[in-house]
């Protein structure tokens, strides 16, 4: 990593504890990490390792049980101080874009309407211009008036990516973005993510089971039992396992 790049996201000693009956589940158990502007980080790990919980915490979708989080130099969450849902929403509007395993396109809305959906709830300058640029880059500019049912799986995920980027976020969170796609389409999505990161400098945080996809990241963080794992049996793809 180059030193002049600034730290975009800094998490210190994040904990997230759930209660299931009398049982306490430490989904995230004291994770500290920092992500620099323009970095491409992948989180890997087995099911239940806390990947999704972690990405929800650093994605401001949820409050941690304890710990603090700084985004873009701003202290978002500190010890003991929970943000209200609407405050978190405001932070998400300005900083984050999300893509998920399922595409969650609204079936009765056209591609264009689905992409512009966030602006049904708030307004931002230059939206139409950004739309044209995005759909051209993602190769869905000919599909704007189609309904999701008329698209292929890969196209649907591209629409979901366009929707995640329409508010020009600084951080793109991708939670298993290729989970519903075959190998070829997965590779395509991987290329798109890499391109967004390299050419436009968008910081990408990726959660995946797919080791091939994880490999395109600048940094891979392995999680186990809610903690960052660096043990001898670490299963990073670069080590030849998976």
């Amino acid at each position: 990593m180059e030193n002049q790049k600034k730290v975009l996201l800094e998490a210190i000693d994040l904990h997230k504890t759930y209660h299931r009956g009398s049982e306490e589940i430490h989904a995230v158990d004291g994770i500290s990490l920092s992500i620099q502007e323009g970095e491409f980080v992948a989180f890997i790990g087995p099911s239940g390792s806390g990947k999704t919980t972690l990405i929800n915490l650093i994605g401001c979708l949820d409050n941690p049980t304890s710990g603090s989080l700084k985004v873009n130099g701003r202290n978002i969450i500190g010890d003991g101080k929970d943000m209200s849902e609407n405050e978190l929403t405001r932070i998400r509007r300005e900083n984050y874009g999300y893509i998920f395993q399922k595409f969650y396109l609204i079936p009765t809305l056209t591609v264009k309407e689905n992409i512009m959906l966030p602006f049904a709830f708030y307004k931002k300058q230059g939206m139409e211009k950004n739309l044209n640029k995005l759909v051209t880059e993602l190769g869905i500019d000919q599909r704007l008036n189609h309904l999701p049912s008329q698209l292929s799986g890969g196209e649907m995920q591209r629409v979901a990516i366009a929707r995640a980027l329409i508010n020009e976020p600084v951080i793109l969170l991708a939670d298993e973005p290729t989970g519903n796609l075959d190998t070829r389409r997965s590779a395509e999505i991987g290329e798109i993510l890499l391109d967004l990161n390299r050419r436009q400098g968008i910081t990408i945080i990726l959660v995946t089971h797919n080791p091939l996809l994880a490999e395109i990241a600048d940094r891979i963080v392995e999680l186990k039992d809610g903690q960052i794992y660096n043990g001898p049996d670490s299963c990073l793809p670069s080590k030849g396992c998976a």
């Binding site: 609407n86 999300y98 959906l117």
Partner: peptide, 11 residues
Amino acid sequence: ILKSMGAMRGD
């Protein structure tokens, strides 16, 4: 998902 992309409770 609508909420994750910026819809408030009121929306």
